[in-house]
Design a protein around this nucleic acid. Structure first.
Length: 544
RNA sequence: GCUCUCGUAGUGAAAUGGAUAUCACGACAGGCUUCGAACCUGUUAUUGGGGGUUCGAAUCCCUCCGAGAGCGCCA
């Protein structure tokens, strides 16, 4: 990585102070390809003017390592700006062609060898919502990225297939079919009525066992969820963990209680059993077992953490919906007690559904909501995926389905895909095998502003991957895709790759060599698009 | 009432405390006899208001205004 190279120069040869060195890509070209503010940071420590320090660093860099740069400039108030030499970029191009599908992989610092990512995990009491889709795409891509960076990732969907929700679902079905009286907190969505009508005989059979009935219905809803998630949205899961089978029936509830007890963190009050989560920064202690002797959802989750740990995971990432943010501290407390090394919780913000400029309240209980399936049917999975990925998880989103439909053809995902299509179009047209191109071409010919800008953008791919992995933020890659596409479109607009037939025919060796060099460039671009789209989980079409 | 999150062009979003705030859509003005124009080139903002912290603030602190969420022995 070019960034790492600069960093190493700065660290080893120039700056001896223990200070974190930041290198970034400035927004404006006039400030170079890369830039650093170390001089500004050092000024206080060394009690010297930042400009003076910057000049000193520049001088040392020039005498030591000039070959990496074509220019180093000091700019007020104390930035040091770097211009990377063509040769370095050309070497990077060779690197891309050599590593192919492995280009961009990088070992991230503090890497966990085995990590579980739990996402969506919506209760199987009905179809998935838009917010579930948001977490779903995010989890899927985050998993891809971490896998690419060498983690062993397990993608988990935790299914709450027992407990109160399921019981309520069973009762709701009974109420729909007239076996019991309807209550306010019952599920009233069309899908419940539909299921109830279809399975009248079953609901009659289980009218005295609403939990079992709820579980039967939940199993059917889960099938639908799986279909939407895996087949249509192309979100992969490795494990569908059942609360009933994997946690309760494997007695993880007892096991986790034993641990709490051994650590003297539980007590009884008002007939209930409590965990001292306040010892771990929570606002108040939490109930594990209710007065009526039922284990809470929280206890089951603690059991789930223990189960995860016992299968060899020391790290876990959870992506939760906005209604869970008050829940974060207590589960982190539980994770800590159990001994999970790291529990990273990402809480996505709400997705508000708008229609004709007005908000539509979504609720599973009332059955009023747009399902995730509706969305990907209307706007196509690639567009829906990209739409969510370009939003950072902490922003509140307004989602207008009508508008989304209308605009789906203008989704930026097509902008990126079209760039890849253009790459492939040229390669198809010329029809030269990669090996021939590599032998005959001379990448040193790539030296126009457009060549260089494109190469620079390509060289940023590993940096984008690393940043996305470090910050658990897939959005960085989605934006990178647009940056790369823009740079390619620009290049394509201004530079001809295949010369007009006449000049090629007239023995113009120069022209041919330039073409071959450009073909190398395009092949490399395509490799990056392939890797990138693979990580983002979007298609690589060869025509549109 | 208490706690948390968010307020950025007409719209939707971006920006580990960095330089002249970025991108897309819309609108307006241009660009194909040549590798597909699903593209390219222009124009479009006192970052909700007011204070503070510092070399430097959309970002951190205080305050006000506005939006959303959480405050159960529910999940």
């Amino acid at each position: 990585m070019i960034k790492t190279k600069i960093l190493n120069y700065l660290k080893k040869a120039v700056i001896k102070e223990p200070i974190e060195i930041e290198i970034f890509v400035p927004e404006n070209e006039q400030f170079g390809h890369y830039s650093t503010n170390v001089a500004l940071k050092l000024a206080k420590k060394l009690k010297k003017s930042p400009l003076e320090i910057a000049e000193e660093i520049k001088t040392k860099l020039i005498t030591n390592h000039y070959s990496l740069f074509t220019k180093i400039e000091v700019a007020p108030p104390g930035f040091i700006n770097f211009w990377i030499s063509e040769k370095v970029l050309q070497d990077e191009l060779r690197e891309i062609l050599k590593k192919k599908q492995n280009y961009g992989k990088s070992a991230v610092k503090g890497q966990m060898s085995k990590v579980q990512i739990e996402f969506i995990s919506a209760n199987p009491t009905g179809p998935l919502t838009l917010a579930n889709g948001r977490g779903g795409f995010m989890g899927d891509v985050l998993s891809n990225i971490l896998e690419f960076c060498g983690y062993k990732v397990e993608r988990e969907y935790y299914v709450n297939d027992t407990g109160n929700q399921i019981l309520t679902l069973g009762k709701s079905i009974l109420a729909t079919n007239g076996f019991i009286k309807n209550e306010e907190n019952f599920y009233k969505g069309g899908y419940v009525k539909e299921w109830a009508k279809k399975h009248k005989a079953i609901s009659k059979k289980y009218q005295n066992n609403p939990l079992k009935l709820g579980q039967l219905a939940a199993a059917d809803f889960l099938k639908e969820i799986k279909k939407a998630v895996e087949k249509e949205a192309k979100i992969k899961f490795d494990r569908w963990t059942s609360e009933d089978k994997h946690i309760h029936k494997k007695s993880y509830i007892d096991k986790v209680l034993k641990i709490f007890k051994a650590k003297k963190l539980i007590y009884e009050k008002d007939g209930a059993l409590w965990l001292k989560t306040t010892d771990f920064n929570d606002e108040k202690d939490r109930v594990l077992i209710t007065q009526d002797k039922f284990p809470t959802y929280f206890l089951a989750d603690a059991g789930h953490f223990l189960e995860t740990k016992s299968r060899g995971f020391n790290s876990k990432i959870m992506i939760l919906g906005p209604d869970h943010h008050g829940y974060v501290k207590r589960i982190q407390a539980a994770a800590k007690i159990i001994g999970l090394k790291e529990l990273k919780v990402i809480v996505t913000q709400a997705v508000r559904l708008m229609s004709a400029g007005k908000e539509v309240k979504m609720s599973k209980r009332t059955g009023e909501f747009v399902t995730f399936e509706d969305l990907i049917k209307e706007v196509k999975p690639d567009a829906a995926r990209f739409f969510f990925l370009t939003h950072s998880p902490e922003t509140h989103m307004d989602f207008d389905l009508d508008l989304a439909k209308e605009r789906s053809m203008k989704n930026p995902v097509y902008y990126a895909q079209y760039a890849a299509v253009r790459c492939q179009g040229i390669i198809k047209k010329v029809n030269i095998r990669t090996s021939d191109v590599l032998r005959t071409s001379d990448v040193q010919k790539l030296n126009t502003a457009e060549d260089i800008n494109l190469m620079r953008q390509m060289a940023r791919f590993p940096e984008a991957v690393e940043e996305a992995a470090k910050n658990y933020n897939p959005q960085i890659l989605a934006r990178y895709a647009l940056d790369l596409a823009r740079e390619f479109h620009n290049f394509y607009e201004k530079e001809r790759i295949i010369p007009a037939r006449r000049s090629l025919g007239e023995g113009g060796g120069e022209e041919k060599n330039l073409m071959l060099a450009r073909l190398v460039l395009i092949r490399a671009t395509l490799i990056i698009f392939k890797n990138l789209f693979g990580l983002l989980g979007i298609g690589l079409p060869d025509k549109m």
